[in-house]
Design a protein around this nucleic acid. Structure first.
Lengths: 159, 159
DNA sequence: GAAACTCTGTACAATTTGCCTAGTTACTCA
DNA sequence: TGAGTAACTAGGCAAATTGTACAGAGTTTC
């Protein structure tokens, strides 16, 4: 379950200029068109590349505030109803269950600090949530990225 | 700085089937091709859609462990050298500065729990980092998503 | 009311895609 | 060593898409 350098270069190329076609990619990479097609198919099939979805910046929609909310929940039986309720809140972008003293870790966005209070209130109201604790992200010196990792994998594999 | 329902539908459509062409989008949405083109250009120009990069799943590359590492740093002068050093570690996918008792919040991945230790060691070695605290993500009931938010914006704007 | 936008419908040439075939190279395994 | 398999190259063809342009109709803004 690894990728080689051509895969990495292909991913990096598409990351840099995503609207590129298969033909143009093959030209840039110096390989045949069929090869690029096959590589892309394989990367998708193996689940390495899960899609080419549009990347939306919440800040550009007015959601300037990002916060991380940690939850303690009351253990409930059966399927996890807390996640479902959290998933129903649009401002909740991501939820993880975690180790440590707390139970869940969420990323949320809001239009302002006041609006964040509204969102947190919604989270607190979720049945099963006992306590929340929030920190606000002031700045994002390293925005989410996977490219260095992608470039690193074939380097490691090669040795 | 908002989007209307057509924008939201377009984003949702592309999120669902990202490799769709402009022409196919226009058919699905029931509008003219030029409209889709103009909308996409506008969304890009306004920074709402920042790109169509390939979404890479670190887990598919063998990075099965995700963790959140919180840092306390020694205040240093000038430009932020801590972020730069963190950015140089491929396994560090994201860094935020935060409010509260700690100073920074990172998302990191690793190949295993043992490998996580290696990554954390690298973070600890960063000049200026005083203390770290980590929690491991056990499960991700809500993976990162923006669609509900995108769908919500025009709903709110309409009233 | 006029200016400024946005959307539609249409057109055309150039490019790209999807799909296919055949030959070559590299690697695995008996 | 030799057969079998997988991956890459190079090429060809028809169909579809893209980039770009333009005129006309509706809306919104001031």
């Amino acid at each position: 379950m690894t990728i080689d350098e051509l895969d990495a270069r292909l991913i990096a190329l598409l990351a840099a200029e995503p609207r590129l076609g298969v033909l143009e990619c093959s030209r840039r990479l110096g390989v045949a068109r069929g090869t690029v097609q096959a590589r892309l198919d394989r990367l998708s099939a193996r689940g390495v590349v899960t899609g080419f979805g549009p990347d939306v910046a919440p800040a550009a929609l007015g959601y300037d505030v990002t916060a991380f909310v940690t939850l303690q929940i009351r253990q409930v039986s059966g399927h996890d109803p807390v996640s479902d309720q959290l998933a129903a809140i649009p401002e909740v972008l991501e939820v993880h269950t975690i180790t440590g003293g707390d139970d869940m870790h969420c990323r949320v966005v809001a239009r302002s600090n006041a609006d964040l209070q509204r969102v947190i209130d919604q989270i607190v109201d979720v049945h099963g949530v006992v306590r929340t604790s929030s920190v606000i992200a002031l700045d994002t010196p390293v925005p989410y990225r996977v490219l260095p990792l992608v470039a690193d994998v074939p380097r490691k594999a090669r040795g």
